[in-house]
Design a protein around this nucleic acid. Structure first.
Lengths: 148, 148
DNA sequence: TTGTTTGCAAACCTTTTGCACGTTA
DNA sequence: TAACGTGCAAAAGGTTTGCAAACAA
């Protein structure tokens, strides 16, 4: 939790250093994102802010998410299904990937050194300079496997 | 090429065995998909068929792609950017992943055993029964790196 | 004939943009 | 005050659905 609060301040400072002013909608988005422990939809973010009485427009949510993504402060995560998700990104390139249960919708996170090494090796072999990589595993989670 | 033609017949037979009738739009989609060597957009498929004088509707293109995807005959590929791509899937689970150059839009394919092993291991460790996995690498391809 | 497939148009959903107004520095 | 941020509404993709007509078995 303290880690995510730190992210909020970090994001806030980073934007300010970039010459951006403060604004109600943006602050609310950053605050809510900072309290998130997994990736979230723009619509979910919007609904949550509205539910707590905040009069944000969904355009401002998207605009803030764009700014954050441009500066590498959030990662866009695409789990399939046509809606982009967003999650806070720590500086230093630390990251994780996602496991999605197609039966119940549950989402888990993981990271794996051997996986990262394999990806770096492949990129190098193909002559690519790697900027980012997305890995999404789909399947049935432990609970859903038992039911079938 | 003969491999992709084989896919066309395989897909056609598979649908017929599934109780589906033959139809102009569906046959055209399968034929065009069979001649494809990389993933393609529904819109691109539609445009190509129209360009050769075929009066298909884009709805039929999507419906056919859905049917094929349901039976595992095509894979949906999401390279980011909001448009789903589709590519023929061979039986037996053989597959590849994609490298995208964010500068020029070039798309390369690759497969890697160590990568596959890492993914299987992760899924097992998390208790998931793996159904599919998507891996997309983004970066700058060899040509674009030189320009920068 | 009977049920499936098709094309068109309209609906839908997510995301982006235009614009007048409010707010920050 | 000058520039930026915001909310609303409209627009812009991409994809899905309703429906009557065409078609395959």
């Amino acid at each position: 939790m303290s880690g995510t609060t730190a992210w909020g301040e970090y994001a806030h400072d980073s934007l300010r250093r970039g010459g951006a002013r403060s604004g109600g909608a943006r602050d609310a988005v950053i605050r809510h994102l900072a309290a998130q422990d997994c990736c979230i939809t723009a619509q979910e973010l919007f609904d949550a802010l509205r539910a707590e009485g905040n009069r944000v427009g969904i355009a401002s949510v998207y605009r803030t998410l764009d700014q954050l993504a441009e500066r590498g402060l959030v990662h866009r995560v695409d789990l399939g299904g046509g809606t982009t998700r967003f999650e806070p990104a720590l500086p230093g390139g630390e990251h994780h990937h996602h496991l999605v249960c197609d039966a119940c919708g549950r989402v888990d996170q993981f990271d794996d050194d051997a996986l990262e090494r394999a990806l770096s090796r492949v990129a190098a072999a193909e002559g690519y300079e790697l900027a980012k990589h997305d890995v999404v595993l789909h399947g049935a989670c432990e609970s859903c496997r038992r039911v079938e």
